[in-house]
């Protein structure tokens, strides 16, 4: 009859351990989170939550949405924003096949060289080439954009508090400034941008701005969701593999933990 009693002991120990671990684990992120929130100034902006296909532990990227998002990037964003970490070959990740990628890449002219005469030249891109950059360098980008540098979008979802939700909110968050607020010359009012004044003019402004091949209605909200999905994939192309591996890993470790605990109890049985 002492068994049930003894079985409580490790439970209690574990509880004690958890009691100590919990504040350590809980405090750290709380401290970090609050720090990041403070970065936005005292006026705390609430970012609305968007339903994305990749939300949650088992979420995956909606390939059709990501492909539409790439189309939005290609036709709208890429005029100013580079994605220097990506190559055309990476697009297999949103479901394009190698032939589609080769055809797509060849639409772009990229610089290569020097040739035998020591000159740089343009040639059609290949799948192994990086995405074509809209500007030769940062100075050129600033010069063309009223002094503001359009940031690279490769890891934008990881580089902003709020991630894809924030990007979606930003893209649909343009509105008339509230009374009493004067927007500076060349700036635009956006209710989700920290400080509310953003140099980027509303990039997605009319329904049907792009024509989706799959017939999806290109509302501003739809385009914003699609491009946020594409950018989320671009920032974390390993996400699906990572989560799948994580699930297997945790199942494996749980079984191993159960076995190890059983052996531990057996070994210690003659002491208790």
């Amino acid at each position: 009859m002492r068994r049930p009693l003894l079985m409580l002991v490790p439970t209690l120990k574990a509880a004690a351990l958890a009691a100590v671990l919990a504040p350590v684990l809980a405090l750290a992120p709380a401290a970090l989170g609050s720090g990041a929130r403070a970065a936005e100034g005292h006026d705390v902006i609430h970012i609305p939550d968007t339903r994305f296909s990749f939300d949650g532990i088992f979420g995956t990227f909606d390939r059709a949405s990501a492909q539409r998002g790439f189309q939005v990037y290609k036709e709208v964003c890429s005029a100013c924003h580079s994605m220097r970490q990506l190559s055309y070959r990476h697009l297999t990740g949103i479901g394009l096949n190698p032939a589609q990628i080769a055809a797509l890449a060849s639409q772009f002219q990229v610089q290569d060289g020097p040739n035998d005469n020591g000159e740089m030249f343009e040639r059609p891109a290949r799948p192994s080439d990086h995405f074509r950059r809209p500007f030769a360098n940062d100075a050129a980008a600033r010069a063309a954009n009223n002094g503001a540098l359009p940031p690279d979008l490769s890891v934008m979802v990881k580089a902003r508090e709020g991630g894809a939700d924030y990007l979606h909110a930003l893209l649909v968050g343009y509105e008339e400034p509230p009374p009493g607020i004067t927007v500076m010359e060349g700036m635009h009012y956006n209710k989700y941008f920290p400080g509310h004044q953003i140099a980027m003019a509303p990039p997605l402004n009319t329904e049907g701005q792009v024509t989706y091949a799959d017939g999806t209605k290109a509302t501003v909200d739809q385009m914003a969701t699609d491009v946020a999905t594409f950018l989320a994939w671009a920032a974390e192309p390993e996400l699906e593999q990572r989560r799948a591996m994580g699930v297997r890993m945790i199942i494996f470790l749980t079984i191993l933990g159960g076995l190890a605990y059983a052996v531990k109890r057996k070994v210690w049985a003659d002491l208790h």
């Binding site: 890993m249 933990g257 052996v263």
Partner: peptide, 23 residues
């Protein structure tokens, strides 16, 4: 006694580690 107890602890620890790394 403590090799097995440490081993069990390591597996539990790796679960926490894995949650952080994978999710």
């Amino acid at each position: 006694y403590y090799t097995i107890k440490d081993s069990f602890g390591i597996v539990v620890y790796l679960v926490v580690f894995a949650i952080l790394v994978f999710f």
